[in-house]
């Protein structure tokens, strides 16, 4: 009992905040998903009509689901792994490591507009840097962002560019790995790679778990870069759920429909997250 009270006391800031600032808007948006709502007039009840249309009469919605799943399932594991390796590299004590760390974190600091302009140039099929380099080895590169068979791959590769955030989190975690474990491994004759896999990785599972869950949640809300670089095109090859939601909500002005879309999206993310959370006791080691 006393323990209960103490626990609730500690989490009370969030509980209050949730009740005041989050719960109401959440409930409101559930209700809105069963209505036709265009901001100016009061919402009118339409029952399951929005869900029906989405599931059975909206090909763009299914395209968006597919694209988002592909992105989440490829970009997230890729990013989690790449950030881990980069973090190991950046954990080394060499001169100027502070500069390197800053450089890899740059994508989070440079305004998206500025970096997007650069990507447009780098990926320009005829005069861009990437295809220029490929041409040196005799390959004619594609139109990275404008070719529907390449645009998704390109966005996934660009997502790697933003791993600096995860790297910082890993770096914070790496310092918590007990040195005694390394020492024992060294005595057993384990090399650098073996130590990374058998000691660092298991010790880092809480952080890996965090990055994985947040990666999934963010992947489902992936928006800015796709909005600026491709706007969902070409041919809906990069139409993501968040992008479609934005168009429906603020462009075509159909907030009921957008809310229904958001809740389908919510159920998807929630079940993936919940699944990860349920299995995490098996592979995440605390302490």
């Amino acid at each position: 009992m006393r323990r209960d009270r103490l626990g609730y006391l500690f989490i009370s800031p969030w509980l209050i905040g949730f009740a005041v600032f989050t719960a109401l808007p959440f409930i409101a948006s559930v209700c809105l998903s069963f209505t036709h709502y265009t901001v100016a007039s009061s919402p009118t009840w339409v029952g399951l009509a929005n869900y029906q249309t989405l599931l059975f009469d909206d090909p763009s919605f299914w395209t968006a689901i597919w694209n988002t799943l592909v992105y989440a399932l490829v970009a997230v594991p890729l990013g989690v792994a790449a950030a881990f390796v980069l973090a190991l590299l950046l954990n080394v004590e060499v001169r100027g490591i502070a500069v390197y760390r800053t450089i890899f974190f740059l994508p989070h600091i440079v305004p998206v507009v500025a970096s997007s302009v650069v990507f447009m140039w780098v990926l320009n099929p005829q005069i861009g840097l990437v295809n220029g380099i490929l041409r040196l080895v005799g390959i004619e590169g594609p139109a990275w962002l404008q070719d529907p068979s390449w645009s998704m791959t390109t966005l996934i590769m660009l997502s790697l560019w933003g791993i600096g955030g995860s790297v910082v989190i890993y770096l914070a975690g790496l310092k918590d790995v007990p040195a005694s474990l390394y020492e024992a491994a060294r005595i057993d004759g384990a090399n650098v790679v073996q130590r990374a896999i058998h000691i660092t990785m298991p010790m880092m599972t809480p952080v890996i778990f965090f990055n994985l869950v947040m990666g999934i949640i963010h992947a489902f809300q992936y928006f800015t870069q796709a909005y600026i670089l491709t706007s969902g095109g070409p041919q809906e090859s990069t139409l993501f759920l968040a992008l479609y939601l934005f168009f429906r909500a603020w462009r075509y002005l159909d907030l009921g429909y957008a809310s229904a879309l958001a809740w389908i999206m919510f159920v998807l993310v929630a079940s993936i997250t919940y699944g990860l959370f349920k299995t995490h006791k098996r592979w995440v080691h605390y302490e």
Binding site: L88, K175, V177, A179, R195
Partner: peptide, 15 residues
């Protein structure tokens, strides 16, 4: 032995 890049004594949980 002293070349392990991932070893940093100051990080030690033991401390």
């Amino acid at each position: 032995m002293s070349e392990d890049p991932f070893y940093d004594e100051r990080s030690s949980r033991d401390s």
